[in-house]
Amino acid sequence: MESRNQTVVSEFLFLGLTDDPELQSLLFGLFLFIYLVTFLGNLIILAVSSDSHLHTAMYFFLSNLSFTDIGLSTTAIPKMLLNLQAQNKSITYTGCLTQTCFVIIFVVLENFLLAIMAFDRYVAICHPLRYSIIMNPHLCGLLSLLSLLISIVNALLHSLMVLRLSFCTDLEIHHFFCDLAQILNLACSDTLINYILVYFVVAVCGGVSLSGIIFSYIKIVSSVLRMSSAIGKYKAFSTCGSHLSVVALFYGTGFGIYFSSAFTNSSMKTVVASVMYTVVLQMINPFIYSLRNKDIKEALRKVVGRTPLF
């Protein structure tokens, strides 16, 4: 390993997206807009919680997904906006580890939620008469709680493993938030165990969730193709369209980050891919579900209709 002086870490420095002051002002406005739209778009949570007709497993998990999207956006964007506005690129060591921990929690949680939602669609289409029995409130709450606990334990484990590392005098993070891979690259001590843990968790959590999604949709397609009614086939596939779109974007951008970091030397490509993964995706998720779901549209109309203008 290259010999570099070690130092007691008090803060890290973000290199961000650009050093151009004019572009920074433009980025501040853009990301502030995205953040506000993300919050407004995720009013789907309010719609689900206020409309008794939407108190089903599908919308319960959808509200969990919206909460996760808000959490991930809130973890990454406000600190970036503050740095852009104050022309300050620093973040404390404790703040960086905290941000890393929450990013991991919400990313892993969304990974599990997408798999659970695929299972929910499988039960609804392949076992419609037993849907309410299988996807009962107890099971839905248990699956959500278990996913959250695994995500928290995983994030804490990664954070504790970072605490054992010593860092060098070069403390510049080529990113706009504290990404675990970027932190490991700055360490002077041996990070082999950290990387093994990262790859193991990605393989297990990502592999299990993606396998569950693929298995669920193989069963769904097989069941739908056996339907004799063209209308029945259309309704079955239409209930899965939104979920498949979000799955494609989530794992597509996730693989994009992996390939951009593993097979290219461009840190900017990795940052751009991360923007899609942690910012843009959270903004468009609620719109994907809202635009393709009549129940969500109706619930949102009721919420807007009951909201006073002044």
Rank of each mutant, 00 (worst) to 15 (best):
S50V: 05
D170Q: 10
S228L: 08
F12T: 01
I77E: 03
M268F: 07
L82K: 06
C126D: 11
L192W: 06
D179W: 01
L171P: 01
N293W: 00
N88C: 07
R164M: 07
Y258S: 05
A124I: 04
S211G: 14
A155E: 02
V224K: 03
N136V: 08
L84M: 04
C168R: 13
F119L: 14
G206E: 01
T38W: 02
F255T: 08
L23V: 11
L36T: 14
C178A: 06
Q24C: 10
V8T: 15
S151D: 06
Y251V: 13
K219Y: 08
F61K: 03
P21K: 12
Y35S: 13
L13H: 12
Q282I: 02
H127D: 09
S66W: 01
L36V: 15
L149D: 04
Y289D: 00
I44P: 00
G254M: 06
S147W: 03
C240L: 09
G207S: 07
V246T: 12
A187D: 08
S151C: 05
V279Y: 03
V280E: 01
I105V: 15
A181P: 02
T239L: 11
L184H: 04
S209M: 06
S90V: 11
L142S: 12
K219F: 07
R121F: 06
D190M: 06
T169N: 13
C140H: 03
A76Q: 02
P308H: 11
N42Q: 09
E172P: 00
V280K: 08
V8H: 12
Y122S: 03
L186H: 08
F200P: 06
D179H: 06
I45E: 03
V204Q: 11
R292C: 08
H127K: 15
V221R: 13
P286M: 11
E298K: 13
L97E: 08
I284S: 08
R306S: 14
I220W: 04
L114T: 01
S209R: 09
L145M: 11
V303G: 02
G232W: 01
N136W: 05
L62M: 13
N42I: 04
H55Q: 15
T278Y: 05
N154C: 12
V153Q: 02
A115P: 00
V280P: 00
I125S: 05
L13C: 07
C240M: 02
G241R: 15
L160R: 14
I105H: 04
L30C: 14
V201Q: 13
A115I: 00
N293Y: 02
C178Y: 04
L165N: 07
F31V: 05
N5Y: 02
S222N: 14
T307Q: 06
L97Y: 06
R121K: 15
V304E: 09
C126T: 07
K302I: 13
I152H: 01
G141S: 10
D179E: 14
C188L: 03
F61P: 02
T68F: 03
F106R: 02
L186C: 08
F61V: 01
A76L: 07
